[in-house]
């Protein structure tokens, strides 16, 4: 790891000020992605802004038809929260599928969503649930937020403070894990809220998380795994690497989408 200067801002405003002044600075939340990247020297930020002391960035709040979770809320807190388990059980389950228990004790929601790793779980939940990313400057719809691999709509000096998830009527997440890294080789999140039906895919696309509109249209006619039978997505634009070819990933998208819909309607495949 290359040397850096270390700052501990006390408020979001202070952090934003430092971030604006130092364009290459990085925010440190749980550090479970950033620190490994720095150890591999794939990143060498000259300044690190540790967000631990900033108050008001952590916590889970249910209000009306949305669940709002602070950016510094750790994965284990989302996984173990009775409020999340009751309001959006799939979100609690998804948080429990990230990494391993020790990683979940450190990793944060905001960190994951700001990083937008193409194999991460939370981006699928944000896009699948139609979440709103709330920053120190504005509110960004998930549809406008994820702009490509490790790329987001965040501007210089912009910091995620919380994320608001609308409560779906039905939802499920199916993750096909890379056995070594525990990341999603492919993960499919489906959700139904009124007439709004979303199918979000992580792990597969070479541009990061994306929606499958052809599946969504089919599910609008009838929200059943049968509606997806025979439907496929093209292998073009899928990731291809030592862990799986583009064709294999495209195939998994279909399989996992059908399984997720089955789970969402309470009829999981045996």
């Amino acid at each position: 790891m290359y040397a850096f200067t270390f700052h501990r801002p006390q408020t979001v405003r202070q952090a934003a000020g430092l971030l604006t002044k130092n364009a290459d600075a990085k925010l440190l939340a749980g550090g479970q992605s950033l620190l490994p990247t720095m150890k591999l020297r794939l990143a060498s930020p000259p300044q690190i802004l540790d967000m631990t002391l900033v108050e008001g960035l952590s916590g889970i709040e249910l209000s009306g038809r949305a669940l709002t979770i602070g950016a510094m809320t750790r994965h284990y807190e989302v996984n173990a929260s009775p409020v999340v388990q009751q309001a959006i059980p799939v979100l609690a389950k998804l948080a429990g599928l990230i990494g391993d228990p020790a990683v979940r004790h450190r990793g944060t929601l905001g960190g994951s969503v700001a990083n937008n790793d193409p194999n991460a779980d939370y981006p699928a939940a944000c896009l699948g649930l139609g979440a709103t990313i709330i920053t120190n400057k504005r509110r960004i719809k998930a549809d406008d937020y994820f702009t490509g691999m490790f790329s987001t709509a965040l501007e210089p000096g912009e910091i995620i403070t919380k994320i608001s998830f609308p409560i779906p009527k039905k939802a499920a997440y199916q993750k096909f894990r890379n056995q070594a890294s525990r990341f999603a080789l492919v993960g499919v999140f489906v959700a139904k809220r009124g007439s709004d039906i979303r199918v979000a895919v992580t792990g597969a696309g070479s541009n990061g998380v994306f929606r499958v509109t052809s599946f969504e249209e089919a599910l609008k006619k009838r929200f059943s795994p049968k509606s997806l039978e025979g439907l496929t997505i093209p292998a073009d634009g899928m990731n291809s690497d030592i862990h799986g070819s583009a064709e294999y990933r495209a195939h998994l998208v279909g399989v996992l989408a059908r399984r997720a819909v089955a789970e969402a309607i309470g009829k999981p495949a045996a």
């Binding site: 440190l28 550090g31 620190l35 490994p36 540790d50 631990t52 228990p101 020790a102 990683v103 450190r106």
Partner: peptide, 16 residues
Amino acid sequence: HLDGKAVKSCTTLAVM
């Protein structure tokens, strides 16, 4: 254990 919770000390800075 950091504040009683298991963490990976190779992926945590001492300053944290």
